[in-house]
Design a protein around this nucleic acid. Structure first.
Lengths: 138, 138
DNA sequence: CATGCGAATGCGAATACTTCTCATTATCCT
DNA sequence: AGGATAATGAGAAGTATTCGCATTCGCATG
């Protein structure tokens, strides 16, 4: 029963929110755009408006349930927040997304921010390249 | 005479292109949005359309004259390409932008891409935080 | 378990940013 | 200078996202 999760986050357990959470949890891809979520809802026979999808995803982000990314595509993508931080490496040919975590980079970032006098609140690191499959295909 | 620079880049030396290049070179801020450039043109008494600004900036990017960034603001910002690669650290309060370069991070990124089997083409790293001035102000 | 209040939703209109279309104009080669 | 060709300006069109508001739903209460 996920409605507990929502209540814990200070959100009413409404049908749209439960459905969207479900899609984020059980979708093939971990990274979904608002449009992706909307289409998944329609395919599931749900009658949810696109505006609600945007609203709910934004609320989920504020509540720390999902993370919003800006890949170089012109729209936001959302990913369930599972606690473990990671960065992304993306294929510029096929759009494949992989994840990684590197302690050294994390440490250096913190050091750079400190040296510049900043108190670091967040960071985003995307590596772009051509994935193994697309290299073979070329 | 900068028209040589444009010709070298394979672009005709038109008035809008010269003016935009000039703005990018002499603006207070290194990082400008299309709208910023457009406003600067109008203030300079130039009669250039916003569509042209977008077109020219995109061409400049393709020609390697400028670099396009996607800070978490929903629009693109452009910066003159001066050869030396660097990453950015941004203040989430006042929008200040600083630059840095870290050899260790650059190397690690390359290593991570290789390990994942990717051939790296590019990367973007933004550190978000609160700048010294905004920390004092709080 | 019926009921009411406030919060959440769906819809379409509105906004922000960017690109496209096309008639007009400017650039550059000769 | 003249003409082929590419570039421009203006506004329409296209995406991505948010807003406004009447209606509906969740949930604490009786």
């Amino acid at each position: 029963m996920e409605s507990q999760d929502l209540k814990k986050a200070g959100l009413k357990a409404t049908l749209p929110r439960l459905k969207i959470l479900d899609i984020l949890e059980h979708s093939r891809q971990r990274h979904l755009s608002a449009e992706d979520v909307y289409k998944a809802l329609l395919e599931g026979g749900e009658d949810v408006g696109l505006a609600t999808v945007y609203r709910v995803l934004t609320q989920f982000e504020a509540a720390g349930l999902v993370r919003r990314h800006h890949f170089d595509e012109g729209h936001s993508v959302f990913e369930l927040e599972l606690g473990e931080h990671h960065d992304h490496i993306l294929c510029v040919k096929c759009g494949r997304v992989d994840e990684f975590y590197d302690e050294t980079i994390e440490d250096r970032q913190q050091a750079i921010a400190s040296k510049a006098g900043y108190s670091m609140t967040d960071h985003s690191l995307y590596i772009y390249g051509i994935c193994p499959a697309c290299q073979k295909r070329a």
